[in-house]
Design a binder for these strands. Sequence first.
RNA 1: GCCGACGUGGCGGAAUUGGUAGACGCGACGGAUUCAAAAUCCGUUUUCCUCGGAAGUGUGGGUUCGAGUCCCACCGUCGGUACCA
Length: 853
Amino acid sequence: MSERRKQFPFHDFEPRWQAYWEKHGTFRTPNPEDPDFDPERPKYYVLDMFPYPSGAGLHVGHPEGYTATDIMARYRRMNGFNVLHPMGWDAFGLPAEQHAIKTGEHPRINTEQNINNFRRQLKRLGFSYDWEREINTTDPTYVRWTQWIFLQLYHSYYDTEARQARPVAELEAKGWSREQIDAVRLAYVDEVPVNWSPDLGTVLANEEVEEWRSKGHTVERRPLKQWMLRITAYADRLINELEGLDWPEGIKLHQRNWIGRSEGAEADFTIGEEKVTVFTTRPDTLFGATYMVLSPEHPLVDRITTAERRQAVEAYRTKVGSRSDLERTELNKEKTGEQTGAVAINPMTGGEIPVWIADYVLMSYGTGAIMAVPAHDERDLEFATKFELPVIQVVEPPAGEDWRGFTGEGTAINSGLLDGLPTAEAKARATQWLEERELGRKTINFKLRDWLFSRQRYWGEPFPIEWDASGRHRAIPEEELPLLAPELDDYKPSGSPEPLLSKAIDWVDRGDGVRRETNTMPQWAGSCWYYLRYCDAANPGAPISTEAERYWMGGDGDGGVDLYVGGTEHAVLHLLYARFWHKVLYDLGHLSKPEPFQRLVNQGLIMGEDGQKMSKSRGNVVNPDDVVDEYGADALRLYEMFMGPLEQVKPWSMKGVEGVYRFLARVWRVVMEEQKDGSFRLAAKIDASDPSKDLLRCLHQTIEKVTSDTEKMSFNTAISQMMVYTNALTQEQRVPAAAIVPFLALLSPYAPHMAEELYQVIREKFPAEAPATLASDLDWPVHDPAMLVEDEIELVVQVNGKVRDRIRVARDLEKEAIEQAAVTSPKVAAHLEGLTIRKVIVVPGRLINVVAN
RNA sequence: GCCGACGUGGCGGAAUUGGUAGACGCGACGGAUUCAAAAUCCGUUUUCCUCGGAAGUGUGGGUUCGAGUCCCACCGUCGGUACCA
């Protein structure tokens, strides 16, 4: 197979052009401070989600998004933009540490090898990255600023009045105590129940649990003291400011749901002397509350449980507490709970209801306690049915619907002062009633929890924090950053939640009872701000210079990254975390716009040839290196763009790769011909003549279509049009150079190597046609609308909506004449026989529909 | 269950947003070239028939001169999510 003769020498010219671009710094992007910077040009920042450099190397999914952004970068450059198009490595992470555990080798070594492999693989695909801006999240010069940003969070609090972050120094000045300040920092320490994996030796974020568990690791829940980031302070802004972003609606919705804002009210019930506050989105149903449920972990449970119920309650709490999350989900088909024996007083009705505990009420949401309204809540109804608790209707559904389990809006009944009110008004009325008596208040709750930010791993950024002898945390001075982790003898987790770094006693112990924080940051930390660092990648004095930030992230428009392409797997994690950090830095005056990513595009997954997800175990993985060896980088790029719409999931097809490879070979053969010795030279049929009218029309149609499709990122149809034009060129006996150069310009973002190579050959022979040194320096061609008009056009003639004939008429023929020509055409006339014409519809330039009966 | 995306030839997919359904590519079939093959080039290729048509975009209805596109109901596939009061 690989012995087969290549149809064009991509193995020669692809590496040659890559070397040329690199040597000449073709894709270097000057910054505002640089002497060769041109401020007249508009800016375009086009970004890929940078990869984790895994040992497996590049996957065909990577070049999908990367080719799309590369086309956009090259296209915008040819249109006169200053284009920022960078690449780097999200290189902290558990796999490198797992490797270190196995081999005893420092994770940096393996990470470096993997990066070198990724870089080699990406470079041979001819992406126009400015490699001078390459970044690596594990590099000390990068870690320094990740830690610096953490300190910005640590030194800030959220001012709920001003609805923005401010330095805690302001609070100090106001005389706040150390404890008061610690309680409001954006980065704070708290003891919370976390997902702890003994064999991984770290805690995991909720969203990471499933992934590792499926790989056979155990994950359990236990309370641990952890660093948290107060992302919940930004919940409403993270929802509201999604509004103006050009993102797929599905992703925005996903974020909104994740943040989970719900408006409702708190109501204060009483149990004896104790006050128990519940949260409800339906204060209008207070009269339907027939029992109350506390979460098993609720702090009041001990105090209110009666003596005769104590044993059962304790047993239930123990059972629930030992249950893993997995068991909880499996068991959630059946509701469970126990009676506490206590009785709560409804603040609105004064009625008494029994108090239960049940694990369907979560301590971590709302107040950890609910009023149960079984008539109008599915879960409460299920519980009430099982334990034979009363069900009282308080909402009358619109006609025809069953009231039992009805959760929609209707009219309040059996509800005293609320009777007869529609749900919305009843809610407002009930809330007002509670507020007037100080028995409740309007509240907004979010599903979003604060971000558990510490890990017990080795291969992550250490916290720039130390603990003094009295057990208080404090920041390490900025001048001491970066704070790097010490070398370890072995990287094996101890099995206890003690962080790995605590093994490095010399490093931890700072003398005088001062100890360094031993937790490290999660992998998300580096990816939260990497798009900022690209703007000024080597700056030793700041994460990003003011000038670079203003130019690349600011501007007159909405600012930020103009186009961000990546997979949907980051819909709520990376994309939410990064927005959060960005807003904090914006509030603190470091950034000029509140949102980082203006436009987001998700590429669809590439499936295996069998339609299944690619995986080693299925044996359907395609290695980009093999494809490049066999067909070249241009063919791989072009194929991935030709498969179908970028956003769509689509299966790989090696035959499809061959198809675009054949197309490239046709392009090659239009320009080049083979000599006896097997080398190629410019084909004799290429000349300096003027293109025929038909060819010129096809060229301009192609310019128009490829331009508008590229603009819309409809790459598959742009390529299809280039195929159409190539087929037209193939038919020509003599091919004017003037008909080829603009086409090579169109081709160059898609198949840059071939465009460059063919352009050079033509340029040598026809310098008059060649206004630039490289194909990639050419101006993007502009189509001439005058070239598109035809003197005669074809119109479709329908009779009662069915196509009966096609007629050729002069372009500017008048409507009456067109109608006349249509009805008199023999085929149409035959279909009209015996019918009376009722109406004739003429769609200019397209069709005529004769309505007759 | 809920949320989201989608359903068009043998296959991947087009269709200017209500105006010629199937562009382009793959595969298949036929031909040219060749000692032969590969590669290349030229045709044909939605289905059915009586070669003039008829049907046809998941199913059933509707709006319209005209529907893949809009509306209603249903079926199916894929992805996300899981007691958030």
